[in-house]
Design a protein around this nucleic acid. Structure first.
Lengths: 204, 204
DNA sequence: TGACTTATGGCACACTGTGACAGTTCGATG
DNA sequence: CATCGAACTGTCACAGTGTGCCATAAGTCA
């Protein structure tokens, strides 16, 4: 990995950290891109080369999680019941949190506080989830041998799985330690599985 | 109803219709608020007094549906299983479509075409759904006698119900007639109910 | 070192959204 | 029907986001 790439990664992290701190200090709306750029001593123009938008700053975790999920899903046998594959993808995201650096854990916790304080940011994440859902549904439909534009059931399976993840991420609020959050999220996943009829995801 | 209110309602509808047509003709992004305002001969400033944002134009159905759902929910007995109450709320939204004027049906179909053509608009709707979910979860938590910030299960119940609605709304694509759409949405709701374990929503 | 690629900064610009103020239209009341 | 107050509208100025373009600086490789 060359100097260039390392430097870019450093800048990226610096922008993220500065932004999270500013958001928590003085609010999301009242923090401008100009301020963030100023804090890391880059031009606003450059900011937009690292993050496509201000909103994108709070979506980095979602994007990261989606990538992990798609990877994990690809490794599951195609004849596994689809919901089981998705749940193991979600557990891969949780497992990844275990291996994160302390810096990333810190960012994750700040992000979570941000979501609690500014609920409308949850909406941004939900919007991204809708895209994720399309991608995952396309993959599930492929395994079911159906047309992703027609197969409501594939979409429903994915929607259930992502619901579990989203609920686990956002609720309960006021959870401070990483260990606790992971524990509660794992519980939510199990709770979700218990709600569903055994074998429900294997119908045509 | 006075002249003033009628005129306002007329302007509102005119903006909506002009916007939907422009979006379908020349694309969502490439249509500016100035163009929409020009088409109805109002100032751009006035546009923002009718719709808080450009995005808000494509959320009017969601807002309408949410209002109906909350009303319908309020009329359900508090000891009914929560998921059943929510599903009857969703069916109230479908029933409302039956009673809509031809103009509203036309708008609904245009909106749906718009969502198919520009998938990122689905994200806007999903973002709004996140807020709806919070409100509904608060109501369900109240009925369960729990703290809405802590009760993951209440959030999960709502998430499942809204998943059903969203899947029914967006999938299958390329459905042209209103009757067909309603039929498919009703099917999706039933499908969702069949996926869940009987009595699943009555645990503590 | 020199040539090549890539990142950065600065500039101009289009667009969304808001506050403030002035002018207009509508509704109610006598 | 005249008039006063309330609500609606347009104009202007402005902050903020996001993008295209071009010149310059920095990293990469021979």
């Amino acid at each position: 990995m060359g100097l260039r790439e390392r430097k870019k990664e450093k800048t990226r992290a610096a922008i993220l950290d500065a932004a999270l701190d500013l958001f928590l200090e003085q609010g999301y709306e009242s923090t401008t891109v100009e301020q963030i750029a100023g804090a890391v001593e880059i031009s606003p123009r450059t900011f937009f080369r690292y993050f496509t938008s201000k909103d994108h700053l709070v979506l980095w975790f979602h994007d990261h999680g989606e990538a992990i999920m798609l990877d994990a899903l690809a490794e599951r046998p195609h004849d596994e019941p689809p919901f089981a594959s998705l749940m193991s993808g979600l557990r891969a995201v949780l497992a990844d949190l275990e291996e994160s650096t302390p810096e990333d854990v810190e960012r994750f916790l700040k992000l979570r506080r941000l979501f609690e304080r500014y609920p409308h940011l949850v909406g941004l994440s939900a919007a991204r989830s809708a895209e994720t859902q399309r991608r995952l549904a396309a993959e599930i439909a492929a395994r079911r041998g159906t047309d992703p534009d027609e197969d409501q059931f594939a979409h429903l399976i994915v929607a259930f799985a992502l619901s579990a993840m989203r609920v686990g991420m956002e609720c309960p609020r006021n959870t401070t330690s990483m260990a606790e959050i992971k524990e509660r999220m794992a519980q939510t996943l199990e709770m979700t599985e218990r709600c569903l009829r055994p074998g429900w995801d294997q119908q045509p």
